[in-house]
């Protein structure tokens, strides 16, 4: 691993000096211009993280609300959830983002609700909805992996559906749900890059803007990729820690 990094670093650094194909000066922290550029790029972290976290939390809430009726034995209760999941899963993120950002305010206005959706909330809503179909399926598989006998035992001691979920099923299912859910969070972080196209000032947008002024796409996008890499590696580390902790819990 270390060797690989050294090799990559060496290639890039030697590239710097050879024939001017590389222009690392744009993000050279020792120069004022380079330092300003770097801080400009890194400032996008806050927006990317905030956007991802809010979207992930919303997606988890919507996902649960979709997943629970989706497991009903009554097909009329089950059907809206299935339709929601199939429908949302079929829409690519980018068209949905355009629709929410440009189309949804028009729809809401025609219903007499006058709200403007800014880039941040447009992106949050899109990511949350788009991801909720997947989180719903994660909940479903987690909950269905809990043996049916648990629900039956809960019924025989008089628990209601809500009590059964709250005290019996979810505490057990959460151990199987959390790791894939955390994994899904990585996906949200990466997809948040799409928010750049509606003008949301996150990591990718800032990189794009800098490229337009500096004309150094290779160097700037390389740094951009590095930014996501660091972010995702940190989350991955957390996910693996979580999986170990949950796995250990289950065998106890």
């Amino acid at each position: 691993m270390k060797n690989l990094f050294a090799l990559v670093a060496l290639t890039l650094l030697t590239g710097c000096g050879s024939g001017g194909n590389w222009g690392w000066y744009v993000i050279n922290p020792t120069t004022t211009q380079g330092w300003n550029n770097i801080t400009f790029l890194l400032d996008g972290f806050g927006a990317t993280i905030l956007l991802s976290v809010i979207a992930a939390v919303m997606s988890m809430v919507i996902g649960l609300m979709v997943a629970l009726p989706g497991m009903s034995s009554n097909r009329w209760i089950r059907m809206p959830s299935r339709i929601y999941i199939e429908f949302v899963r079929a829409i690519p993120l980018l068209p949905m983002l355009f629709w929410v950002f440009y189309g949804l305010p028009v729809v809401l206005k025609s219903m007499g609700i006058s709200v403007s959706i800014d880039a941040f909330w447009g992106a949050v809503i899109t990511l949350a909805i788009s991801d909720s179909a997947f989180t719903a399926e994660i909940y479903r598989s987690g909950i269905q992996s809990i043996a049916r006998g648990q629900t039956e035992a809960a019924k025989t001691i008089g628990l209601t559906y809500a009590q059964t979920m709250r005290y019996v099923i979810l505490p057990q299912a959460i151990r199987r749900i959390l790791p894939p859910l955390a994994n899904q969070f990585i996906y949200i972080v990466k997809m948040s890059a799409f928010a750049s196209v509606i003008g949301m000032q996150e990591l990718t947008r800032r990189a794009n803007e800098l490229v337009v002024t500096e004309y150094r796409p290779l160097e700037i996008y390389s740094l951009l990729i590095l930014e996501y890499l660091v972010l995702v590696l940190i989350i991955s580390f957390f996910v693996r820690w979580l999986e170990r902790k949950m796995g250990a819990d289950e065998s106890r």
Binding site: A147, G149, E152, A153, A154, T156, V168, P171, Q172
Partner: peptide, 12 residues
Amino acid sequence: GMVFQQFNLFPH
């Protein structure tokens, strides 16, 4: 009241 073949105790 009901008792099951597989006990169905709540493991957590």
